[in-house]
Every structure is written in structure tokens, then in C-alpha cells.
Design a protein around this nucleic acid. Sequence first.
DNA 1: ATCACTGCAAAGTCTTTGCAGTTCC
DNA 2: GGAACTGCAAAGACTTTGCAGTGAT
Lengths: 142, 142
Amino acid sequence: MMTSNKKVSPTVLKEHQHKVTGPRLAVLDILSKAKEPLTIKEILGKTKKGEVNQATAYRIVNALEKSGVIKRIEWQHGHAHYELTSQRDHHHLICLSCHRTEDVEHADADKMEAQVLRRSKSFSSIQKHSLEFFGLCKSCQK
Amino acid sequence: MMTSNKKVSPTVLKEHQHKVTGPRLAVLDILSKAKEPLTIKEILGKTKKGEVNQATAYRIVNALEKSGVIKRIEWQHGHAHYELTSQRDHHHLICLSCHRTEDVEHADADKMEAQVLRRSKSFSSIQKHSLEFFGLCKSCQK
DNA sequence: ATCACTGCAAAGTCTTTGCAGTTCC
DNA sequence: GGAACTGCAAAGACTTTGCAGTGAT
């Protein structure tokens, strides 16, 4: 059986010294159920009306990103996407035409970071990296 | 001797069916001399007053990016950076604190794209990828 | 009780767009 | 000459911020 993903949220918040509030649980719940990285607009669209204010949503994702609970993903569509930081090392393949996405497994990312750091002259640590692939999906290729 | 980089600009424009104009040459010239990816604001700051309008600058970088002459780079600072598409496969290491950057050589990117495409179910081609590393430089670590 | 968090509205950035005039081919 | 390009100003999209009130611990 997989590790359950229901109601891990309060724990996660406490672990990172965040107060447990309605808006935060709502955002975490939505992200934990998402099959792909979501934009702020998409997150808000999945909340009940009045549950999370837009400004609050921005403040929440910023706080959670700083804590490392969620990850900000840049797909160059003009707005950030967010997803729960997962155990598995994965990246994405994005269709330049229809924006469809596919997960990409890439086990060597840790190795890559270590290698980059070793070769660097002026850096002492690497916190994270971004890696995204852009192409055309089969439907759009036609 | 290195391949000369002076005045390749007009040729590049013609090759991609772009008209050769003052603003375009100015932007290309600035990018060809830059040691690191520049933002629109930085590009404009390096032009002579009245030489390139802001709206035009945006239109130029968009056109050149579409042609593949320049590359858009996302460093999550809230604004895009642009650099000339280079022969060498390189990425960047960015300091989360002071935004200092360092080039990173990574020869396996082509291989990586091929591997990703091979494993993909629903994509038929990969045009490009983004790969950036974020960390702390030695000065900021202190 | 206190400090963090939130809502609301306004402001701030970065980027795009409409349109009329200009320029390259 | 015509399509492509540009400048100017305005609009658009995304995100942040000030402030006063609310709520978690």
C-alpha cells in the first residue's frame, strides 16, 4: 500500500513553524491532490468561494516555498506553477503548443548538483535546480 | 584565434528573415558583448537614449527567441533574462542571495533530451530545455 | 496576550497591444 | 509599394504591499 496522503497537511505546517489555518490547509490539500503543478489562479479556482483570498494565496505559496514544502516551477507561460516537493526526483516535459505536460523521471539530478558544485569556483552550496523540457506532443505535431 | 564576434549581427538577422534595423542591431550588439544573460531593463540601459523603445525591445527579444537566435532564461527573479544562443552547451549557477552567476558546462544535455524523448509516451519532439542551479556563493555563505 | 496570519484594496512590475507613422527590401 | 517594423501611450497580467482586524498557540 502506498503511504497515505490524507491529512498530512497539519503536520507539515507544524514541522515548519507555520500556524495551522484554514487557508493553508486548503492550499496544501489542493496541491496534494493535484496531478500536475498548479498556478495561483488554478489553486484559487479549486477553493470554495471566500475560503482563500488571492493575496493570502500568494503569501502562502511564498512561505511554503521558502520552507521547501512546495516547489515553484517555471514554465515560461508568464505565471509560476507550484507542486508539493516530492521524494522522487522528477521534472517535466511541456508542449510548446498546447501546454500539456508529462512527468519525467531523472534519477541523476543529485549527482548532477554534486558535480556542478565540485566544478564551481565560487559557490559553496547548491540548494536546488530547475530542469524542464519543452517540445511538441504527438497531437500538436500533426 | 577565436571566431570573430564583431558584426555578425546583420547576417544573423537576414538568415532568419528579419529586416535589418537599428534597434535590432543594437540589441544584438549588446547581447553579443554581454558576459551574462541580460534583462530587458539591462538591455535598454545599455542603449543610447532614444535608440530603442521599450515596447520594441520586447518585440525584438520575442522575435529573436522564436527564431532561436537568443535564449530566454528563467531565474525566478520576476523577469526574464536573455543571452545569445551559443554553440557550447552551458547552464548557470545562480546565488539565491546576491544573484551572482557562474557558467556551468554540461556536455550531456543533448543526450539528456534524447533520453527523455525516448522514454516519453506522448511527445514526438523536444525543442529545448531549461536547466539552472540555485545555491549560495562563497561570499554570501558567511 | 502576542505575534502570525488574513482580507481588502491599492499599488507595483513586467510585458503586451492598438494604432498611426516609418522604413527596409 | 507593401509588408515589416517602430514609437508612444494605454492596457493587461501577475504579484506584492499597507493597514487594520482576526485568530492560533
